[in-house]
């Protein structure tokens, strides 16, 4: 039981990180209807920019600000050179364009900042929390807990930002109806650039946390692949969906990784590790078969 809880909590904590990346997708999708496949590449790019600036001698806080500046520029450039030119195209074409964007960024980042795997020190260590180890006999990583806390805080801040600021309200208006937003004089293009900058910020935080944990390397782009099943589960437009979906995926994924392979080995012989690559997808799919509208979506009948 203790072990089960330990795995579950570890899973939930990494689930929060998935939520964070998923949130980057949701932000852009809500505001501009673009499913940004490049979100993972942005995480990679942001983390590389951060260590790159630190290597040049900047302290963490300054490097963070610089990296944010770089991500903002990237967002503006994306809006100006890609999205703006594709306004009248179907969403699926935009999606494919962001796959191209992902490739572009994945090539550009190491060209700018170098190719080596880098360590990133943000003053947090990945060690069990002694108090929990003592009292509950469970290994819960301090790093994971703090990282999850940070991620949650960021999600909360963004939710408040959307709800209560002028810009946030404009964003929501845009998300609800582009035409209407235009007609009441909300400058769409500024809003889109802004939302890409915010998504860049989210990517930066995610890149910093994941990079500090696992090293800053190409594998950071795979964070997007972790976040996609969260999106199917939670829906592309729902912030609570991203959070709850992340928790569900994180928790079940780690549990499945621990408990399913031994069972399969018992039946087939051999080693069946590494199911976390597909398990979240299959689970999200099975869930959709039961509830196509997703966790928080409403049942929708096409209007004709």
């Amino acid at each position: 039981m203790q072990f089960f809880l330990e795995v579950l909590i570890g899973g939930l904590l990494s689930g929060v990180m998935y939520s964070l990346v998923a949130l980057g997708f949701v932000l852009i999708f809500k505001a501009s209807g673009v499913f940004n496949f490049a979100q993972g590449a942005m995480v990679f790019f942001a983390a590389l920019s951060l260590v790159g600036c630190m290597e040049k001698g900047a302290p963490l806080w300054l490097a963070f600000i610089l990296a944010f500046g770089i991500m903002t520029l990237l967002g503006i450039a994306t809006e100006k050179f890609v999205l703006r030119k594709m306004v009248n195209q179907p969403p699926i074409s935009l999606f494919m364009a962001t796959i191209g964007l992902a490739f572009f960024i994945e090539g550009l980042a190491p060209l700018l900042w170098g190719n080596a795997v880098r360590r990133l020190d943000i003053g947090l260590v990945d060690e069990p929390i002694p108090w929990i180890l003592e009292h509950w006999n469970m290994v819960i990583s301090k790093f994971d807990l703090v990282a999850a806390g940070l991620a949650l805080a960021l999600v909360a801040v963004l939710a408040l930002f959307f709800q209560y600021t002028r810009v946030g309200r404009a964003l929501r208006a845009v998300a609800d109806d582009h035409q209407a937003a235009l007609s009441i004089g909300i400058p769409l293009q500024h809003i889109w650039a802004l939302v890409w900058a915010v998504a860049g910020f989210v990517a930066l935080v995610a890149g910093m946390l994941w990079g500090a944990r696992n090293g800053v390397q190409f594998a950071l782009t795979f964070t997007a692949l972790k976040a996609l099943p969260v999106l199917i589960l939670g829906g592309f437009t729902s912030v609570p969906g991203a959070i709850v979906g992340g928790l569900i995926i994180g928790g079940t994924e780690k549990l499945a990784e621990i408990y399913i392979p031994p069972v399969m080995s018992g039946i087939f012989g051999g080693n069946f590790g590494g199911i976390e690559g597909w398990f979240p997808y299959v689970m999200a799919l099975l869930f959709l078969l039961v509830r196509p509208e997703g966790l928080f979506g409403e049942k929708h009948i096409d209007r004709v």
């Binding site: 364009a97 191209g100 572009f104 060209l111």
Partner: peptide, 24 residues
């Protein structure tokens, strides 16, 4: 060779965006 492969990624990415924008 690493640079070449990174350039390749960029060129692929650009090509895709270029075609989608200019000649879908």
């Amino acid at each position: 060779s690493a640079t070449v492969s990174h350039m390749q990624l960029m060129v692929f990415g650009e090509l895709i965006m270029f075609f989608l924008i200019v000649e879908p």
